[in-house]
Amino acid sequence: MIKKEFSDMKLRTFVLLFLGIGFFFMVAPLHKFALEMLNEYTQIPNMPRFLERFLPKGFVEKLSEWNFYIYTQWFGKNLGQFVPIFAIIMGFPIFAREIENGTIEFLLARSSRKRVFISKVLTVSLVVFFQMIVFSILPAIYSLFASKNLDYTYLLAYSIHTIVGALFWLAVTILFSVLSDDQVKPILGAIGTLAGTTVVAVFKPLRFMNTYSYILGGKILSNGKMDVPYTLVLLGLSVALMLLSYVSFLKKEF
């Protein structure tokens, strides 16, 4: 059954994998070009205020350091922004498509609900985990072949933030997929939740709801370590959401 599940998501898996790798090679090789372009902006006389906000004093000098550039521009910007979206794309049809197409009855006639649920969730979770691992080790592989000096002390922390963030949003999406009767609702529900938690975080008491702050790893370079409490909270919520999805799947009438 796991082979069948992977076959169903094979196209999404490799499209997102190649997209992620493509995004990386739009960032890493352009280090010198980005520096030259930013240096030109900083030399503009009477620089507009909005540019000063985007280019604070000393920022360009920091970007000249390979570690600061690749960690902030890959994990802290490009990859981090797409992690929840990639997880949602991988997870939204996992149950909803079977329900919408009426094939869920066929699956349940051949296997127990427990086996169907575990097979589907395990497969998509392993795929997302593999994708995030690949995206996370790209800086190390590129640095090795490009003769760049990468500080690996930050790599593990950024990788954990990326993987845990992806698995959390996958768990959110799976719940919507179980509860929905078509493939549109899980996408709208998951993206709506992502947008809502991001927007309400503009209020200081609700800043903790913005998972992007965690996924982007803004504090890792300054603190030198991952955010352990937030990691544990997201892992706990992910497990809770998976259990809720499992119970809902067992009780759902098809």
Rank of each mutant, 00 (worst) to 15 (best):
Y212V: 02
F135D: 01
S213C: 02
F24A: 11
K225R: 13
F50H: 13
Y212A: 08
T123S: 13
E5P: 07
A96I: 06
K120S: 08
L237H: 07
F168V: 00
G196D: 02
R207T: 15
T173G: 10
V239I: 15
S7R: 13
I118D: 02
L241D: 04
K252L: 06
A140P: 07
I44A: 13
F208Q: 11
I191C: 09
G20F: 11
L122N: 07
R97M: 03
Q73E: 15
T211W: 05
V184P: 02
S143I: 00
F54T: 06
L241Y: 04
I21Y: 02
K148H: 13
D8E: 15
E65L: 11
A109H: 12
G22T: 05
A157F: 05
S7C: 01
G58H: 09
F25G: 13
L155P: 05
Y71P: 05
A146C: 03
F33N: 10
E52P: 02
L244D: 02
K219A: 09
F129C: 10
S143M: 08
V127R: 08
E253T: 14
L216R: 09
Y142L: 01
G91N: 01
P29F: 09
I104P: 06
I118T: 13
F23D: 01
L138G: 06
Y246H: 01
F254G: 08
M47S: 05
I85P: 03
L138T: 05
S248K: 15
N223V: 08
E5I: 09
Y41T: 11
F68I: 10
S136D: 08
S238W: 03
H31E: 07
L232Y: 04
D181G: 14
P56T: 04
F75A: 00
S147G: 00
N149I: 14
G80R: 07
I85Q: 07
W74M: 06
K225W: 07
S64T: 12
K4G: 04
I99S: 09
